[in-house]
Simulated assay, not measured.
Amino acid sequence: MTRFLLLYLVLAAAAAMAAAAAVAGADPVPVAANAEPIRRDPFARPHAVRAAAQAAAAAAAAPAPAPEPVLQLRAIMFNAQRSLVNINGRILAGGDVLDEAMGNYRIAAIHERSVVLRRDGVQRILSLEPEGRQ
């Protein structure tokens, strides 16, 4: 509402000035004839703000690292010849590789109460013991 009122007042003042100039006999000079051309976009953001916005957009577009999968050691069948483990419902033997959904870990060793997993030089140990009792 206030914008329309302000616009109305500006237009009324311009019309009054044009009428006063016509009555005085002087030709009003068009504003565009004396104005310099606009050299830059007045609505453009400064370069630093634009660069920060582009960096933020690039960071948002970059894929976030995948969270470490939750692996639950459910059971171990320990045998001197061939041991098996149940991880997230899958039965696996020593040397098997967990699928991509489970982090592509390789079963490096199976012990009586724990399993050693390796991936890219990183070792992860799963234990049958509850958290804190290991």
Rank of each mutant, 00 (worst) to 15 (best):
M1P: 15
M1T: 14
M1I: 10
M1K: 15
T2S: 14
R3P: 01
F4E: 14
L5Y: 08
L5P: 01
L5E: 14
L5T: 13
L6C: 10
Y8C: 13
Y8R: 14
L9F: 15
L9D: 12
L9W: 09
V10L: 15
V10G: 04
A13S: 06
A14S: 14
A14K: 02
A15F: 08
A15P: 08
A19R: 10
A20F: 07
A21L: 15
A22K: 08
V23I: 15
V23R: 15
V23Y: 12
V23F: 12
G25F: 07
G25M: 06
A26V: 14
A26P: 01
D27S: 14
D27I: 07
V29Q: 11
V29T: 13
P30M: 04
P30A: 07
N34Y: 03
A35E: 11
E36S: 13
E36R: 13
E36F: 06
P37K: 09
I38T: 08
R39M: 07
R40P: 00
F43Q: 01
F43I: 00
F43D: 00
R45I: 01
H47P: 00
H47T: 05
V49Y: 00
R50H: 06
R50W: 03
A52G: 08
A52D: 12
A53C: 03
A53D: 13
Q54M: 09
A55G: 02
A57T: 04
A57M: 02
A57K: 09
A58G: 01
A60P: 00
A61W: 04
A61K: 01
A62L: 07
A62M: 08
A62T: 10
A64P: 02
A64V: 11
A64Y: 02
P65W: 05
A66E: 14
A66T: 12
P67S: 10
E68A: 15
P69I: 05
V70Y: 05
V70C: 03
V70M: 09
V70D: 08
L71N: 06
L73M: 06
R74S: 14
A75H: 12
M77S: 14
F78C: 07
N79G: 05
A80P: 02
Q81W: 04
Q81A: 07
L84W: 12
L84R: 08
V85G: 04
V85P: 07
N86M: 04
N88D: 13
L92D: 02
L92R: 14
A93C: 04
G94N: 04
G95P: 09
D96V: 05
D96K: 06
D96T: 06
V97I: 05
L98P: 03
D99I: 05
D99T: 05
D99Y: 03
E100I: 03
A101I: 03
M102C: 09
M102L: 15
G103P: 03
N104H: 11
I107Y: 00
A109C: 01
H111A: 11
H111S: 11
V116F: 00
R118N: 06
D120R: 11
G121N: 08
V122T: 10
Q123H: 02
Q123K: 10
R124L: 11
R124V: 07
I125F: 00
L126C: 02
L126V: 06
E129V: 08
P130I: 01
E131S: 06
E131N: 02
E131V: 12
R133A: 13
R133L: 13
Q134E: 15
Q134D: 11
